Simulated assay, not measured.
Amino acid sequence: MGAQEGPTLITSVQRALRLLEAVGAHENGAPAKQLARETRLPLATAYHLLRTLLHDGYVRKLDDGGFVLGDRLTSLHAAGRPQSLLSRVRPTLAALRDELSTAAYLTFYEDGEIRVAEIVDGPRTPRVDLWVGFEDAGHATALGKTVLRELGRDARREYLSRHRLADLTPWTVTSLPELLRRLDAPPLAPAVTDLEEYALGTVCVAVPVYRGDTLGSLGISLPADHKDRLRELRARLLPVASRVTRSLSLTT
């Protein structure tokens, strides 16, 4: 029984995909009989699959009986676009990791939150233990503080009004006036650092990037005893960030 179910399911998926391709080839829609002919499917099978695709929103039936692609596919395409954009910059992040022997991170400010979009690490370049989510640690990470710095004062204060300055390590800044002062005048501007403020034993440096109009940050982490490299690493990060911004902002 189990041996027969696998191929049957695979065949059904293949047939459904062939139908979607056929539907997509007709801008003004095509009836089930025509789609069955073009995909070489039995008419009953085509009807069954089209009813399923219609129910789930992958196709839409017009008043004249023709089928066109549905809104569900449009939303899938939109949801997949960020993944497609990230695929453009993963090789750049991997090259950065290999050159600097550090884990590389990419974040974006979306829907009022700072979220990690990509981490590129390896056996010799482990990522920092994300023991507290970035949504609750924007004030303590170089990646988060870079975003906060670029937001501008009003947007920054609005964000900080919704997020408690949690005391994560003995070095975390939990005073709002002090945090704002440091954001306005970071020593390595436009880069921002995290000197064991998020995790003991780890320091980070990050710089701003953009995906179109969406603000983000590119950063790296390294052991705290290597913090004398931060100025050198900042100089390397800036041109890489410009390249990442250009790649992410290209229209598809």
Rank of each mutant, 00 (worst) to 15 (best):
V120I: 11
D111G: 13
Y159E: 02
G152P: 03
P126G: 05
D154K: 13
D121N: 11
L96I: 10
T172G: 01
E99I: 07
L168T: 00
D154W: 09
Y105C: 03
T102Q: 13
L100R: 04
A142T: 01
G152T: 09
R97Q: 04
E99Q: 15
L96F: 03
T125I: 11
R162W: 10
D154R: 14
S161C: 11
P126L: 01
G138M: 01
V173K: 09
A117K: 13
T141Y: 03
T172F: 05
A142S: 07
S175G: 11
R153E: 15
A155W: 12
G152N: 02
R127S: 14
A94K: 13
R164I: 12
L151Y: 09
A142H: 04
A94R: 15
V132N: 12
L148C: 00
E150N: 09
P126A: 00
R149H: 10
L176G: 10
A94L: 13
V147S: 01
A95W: 12
T169V: 07
A95Y: 14
W131D: 11
D167N: 14
R127E: 15
A103L: 04
T107Q: 06
I119T: 11
T169S: 06
A104K: 05
E158M: 08
H139Q: 02
T102W: 10
F108W: 12
R97A: 06
G133T: 14
V116H: 07
F134D: 13
G112A: 04
G133W: 09
G144W: 11
R157L: 15
S175Y: 06
G152Y: 08
E178C: 05
D121A: 14
R157K: 13
Y109F: 15
E113A: 14
